[in-house]
């Protein structure tokens, strides 16, 4: 029992996590490159042209995975933040901090590609649809988290304050989502119904799943790299960092 516990918590120490992350990063990059190449090939050359949307729909292979990742990364970030508050582990805060910029990037990418997709399909760069609006608010939440952490000099305090904010955000995300959804139906602004999922060809689905996998691998690789940098920065006074950099 005690043996297995020690085994699990071994990598909670930045010193032992740093080399592990270093070994894992190339693997995740390789997987990201492979799935990305396969996904893009299927997306651009194999998947059939959409009957209604023509070639323009192909941005879905970037847009949908980015949206998924933006939401999922916030959950993972809040998980690490909560873990850090409960167990008081240093690495948890570092992981949350490492994930935030990638999450913000995914949210921004999702909004950007959404606008590029919206212009030819709906004739507008932006509509105040429930999904678009809540994605925008999610982007604001990421920016708030990053700004709060950047404003506090003491890294331990920054971690804890960020953790409280991430948890408050996670409680609020469903409330925000449903309020925005209801606000949208009340106003009846746009007549476009995004909820009606079009029947999708199997190859399209495969392309999207491969691209989603690619985004996952990319996010993990980048988060691990960023976590390594944060570890070096915060532990710079220790002996092992001096040895690691030699």
């Amino acid at each position: 029992m005690t043996h297995s516990l020690i085994h699990w918590f071994r990598f909670a120490s930045p010193q032992s996590f740093y080399p592990l992350a270093g070994k894992l990063v190339p693997w995740f990059w390789a997987l990201a490159a492979l799935t990305g190449a396969a996904g893009l090939y299927i997306g651009f050359f194999v998947a059939p042209t959409d009957a209604q949307q023509g070639e323009g729909y192909r941005i879905i292979f970037v847009h949908v995975p980015a949206s998924w990742m933006s939401m999922f990364i916030y959950l993972v970030m809040a998980f690490w933040a909560g873990l850090g508050l409960v167990l008081n582990t240093r690495l948890s805060g570092m992981m949350a901090q490492a994930l935030a910029p990638t999450g913000a990037l995914m949210a921004a990418l999702s909004l950007w590609t959404g606008a590029l997709w919206g212009k030819p399909m709906w004739g507008a760069w932006w509509v105040w649809d429930a999904r678009l609006t809540s994605e925008l608010i999610l982007f604001f939440l990421y920016i708030g988290f990053i700004a709060l952490q950047a404003a506090i000099d003491d890294p331990r305090r920054a971690d804890k304050a960020g953790a409280v904010l991430a948890l408050v955000g996670v409680v609020n995300i469903p409330i925000i989502y449903f309020s925005v959804k209801w606000w949208n139906t009340l106003h009846q602004g746009s007549t476009i119904n995004l909820n009606k999922a079009p029947s999708m060809a199997t190859t399209m689905l495969w392309g999207m799943l491969l691209m989603a996998l690619c985004f996952w691998m990319y996010s993990i690789a980048v988060a691990l790299m960023r976590a390594r940098a944060i570890i070096l920065e915060r532990e710079r006074h220790t002996e092992w960092v001096k040895h690691a950099l030699d």
């Binding site: 608010i137 939440l141 708030g144 709060l148 955000g169 925000i176």
Partner: peptide
């Protein structure tokens, strides 16, 4: 910073 943190959370009340 306070405005940045709090205003997104005010959206449901506003709606």
């Amino acid at each position: 910073l306070l405005a940045l943190l709090v205003l997104p959370l005010y959206i449901p009340a506003l709606i």
